[in-house]
Simulated assay, not measured.
Amino acid sequence: MVNLLAYMLKQFAFFTLFAITLVSTSCITNKDVVYLQDKGTVISDSLQIQALAKPYRVQINDILSIDVKALDKELVEIFNPTTNDIGNTQQALYFTGFTVDLHGNIEFPILGEINVLGFTVEEIEDKVKHELLQQYFKETAQIFVTVKLAGLKYTTVGEVVSKGVQVIYQDRVNIIEAIANAGDIQQTGDRTDVLIVRQYPGGQKIHHIDLTDIAAMKSEFYYIQPNDIIMVKPLKRKSLGAGETATQTLTTIASLFSVVISTYFLVKNL
């Protein structure tokens, strides 16, 4: 009996030490989930963020919404597709917008093919307006051209609440806004190393950004671009099967310890 009691005390001491160690290393803390913390990477107390995002340049398979206005509305009707029947949505723009083909061109009414690959939307506005004045209108028509991307489309995968293709109808979206639009990163997601897969003319590149560091706001990847893929990896703690909080972790350990003790007595009584 004395030997059994000594054994139990020894096991309990081991269990207590193990529990304290596991709780201190496996629980998800505020440092893991709080965005834009001051980690000493910013010198001044107040951080003034300058827009580091480069102007987006149109790529193959982008869909453009082009609107032409003039003093005489009837003159520009042919250039403006009607969306009254299907609404001004991403699906509607798929059918009525101007898709950039594999050669970087769009097929514009009257004007024919216009190369837009690598141009900003502002440059495309100037280009379309110039061609219209050259081929169709006179200066007195006072035409006005607006070019926009048909929504900022991106994809979220991994430890986010809503996985899949997302669309935001804004010209500029930062990565935190994009993630919030997808329901935010789950508790088990690694915010310190979020991956951004971005398309370039020569192929795709993977970039890394630490969203728990306020210095992320100065990164050139803080603002997302159309067709970006945002990948959030799971924390290593998740693969261990530990709980998200200390209570959950202790509950798991206690359950395991209870199973071990029950098995010990069961075997001992056989």
Score class of each variant (00 low, 15 high):
residue 2 V to L: 13
residue 2 V to T: 11
residue 2 V to D: 13
residue 3 N to R: 10
residue 3 N to W: 00
residue 10 K to W: 09
residue 10 K to E: 12
residue 14 F to R: 14
residue 15 F to H: 05
residue 17 L to D: 12
residue 17 L to H: 08
residue 21 T to H: 08
residue 22 L to P: 06
residue 23 V to L: 02
residue 26 S to M: 09
residue 27 C to R: 14
residue 28 I to D: 06
residue 29 T to S: 14
residue 32 D to V: 02
residue 32 D to M: 01
residue 32 D to T: 10
residue 33 V to L: 13
residue 38 D to R: 13
residue 39 K to E: 05
residue 39 K to I: 10
residue 43 I to Y: 07
residue 50 Q to F: 11
residue 52 L to Y: 04
residue 54 K to H: 00
residue 57 R to G: 02
residue 60 I to L: 06
residue 62 D to M: 05
residue 63 I to P: 04
residue 64 L to I: 01
residue 65 S to P: 00
residue 68 V to Q: 01
residue 71 L to K: 02
residue 73 K to Q: 11
residue 73 K to L: 11
residue 77 E to D: 07
residue 80 N to P: 05
residue 81 P to R: 07
residue 82 T to E: 13
residue 82 T to Y: 06
residue 86 I to L: 02
residue 88 N to W: 10
residue 89 T to M: 01
residue 89 T to G: 03
residue 92 A to H: 04
residue 94 Y to C: 10
residue 109 P to L: 03
residue 110 I to K: 14
residue 110 I to H: 11
residue 112 G to D: 06
residue 117 L to K: 12
residue 118 G to N: 08
residue 118 G to W: 02
residue 119 F to H: 14
residue 120 T to K: 03
residue 120 T to M: 09
residue 122 E to A: 12
residue 122 E to W: 04
residue 122 E to S: 13
residue 125 E to S: 08
residue 127 K to W: 00
residue 127 K to P: 01
residue 135 Q to A: 02
residue 140 T to V: 15
residue 140 T to D: 12
residue 141 A to P: 00
residue 141 A to V: 04
residue 144 F to E: 14
residue 145 V to E: 08
residue 146 T to K: 13
residue 147 V to G: 03
residue 149 L to G: 11
residue 150 A to T: 02
residue 151 G to P: 12
residue 151 G to F: 06
residue 156 T to S: 09
residue 157 V to H: 02
residue 157 V to K: 05
residue 161 V to E: 05
residue 162 S to C: 04
residue 163 K to G: 02
residue 164 G to T: 03
residue 167 V to H: 10
residue 168 I to Y: 10
residue 168 I to W: 06
residue 169 Y to A: 08
residue 173 V to D: 07
residue 175 I to A: 03
residue 176 I to S: 02
residue 178 A to H: 05
residue 178 A to L: 05
residue 182 A to E: 06
residue 182 A to L: 04
residue 184 D to Q: 10
residue 185 I to L: 09
residue 186 Q to S: 12
residue 192 T to E: 13
residue 193 D to E: 08
residue 195 L to G: 03
residue 196 I to K: 05
residue 199 Q to I: 04
residue 199 Q to R: 09
residue 200 Y to G: 08
residue 201 P to L: 06
residue 203 G to N: 09
residue 206 I to T: 15
residue 208 H to F: 07
residue 210 D to H: 01
residue 211 L to K: 00
residue 214 I to P: 02
residue 215 A to L: 12
residue 220 E to Y: 08
residue 221 F to D: 15
residue 225 Q to M: 09
residue 228 D to L: 09
residue 231 M to L: 15
residue 235 L to Y: 08
residue 237 R to Q: 15
residue 240 L to I: 00
residue 249 T to G: 04
residue 249 T to S: 04
residue 251 T to I: 08
residue 255 S to H: 13
residue 258 S to Y: 11
residue 260 V to W: 09
residue 260 V to F: 14
residue 261 I to S: 04
residue 262 S to G: 03
residue 262 S to M: 11
residue 266 L to M: 13
residue 266 L to E: 00
residue 268 K to D: 00
residue 269 N to I: 13
residue 270 L to C: 04
residue 270 L to T: 11
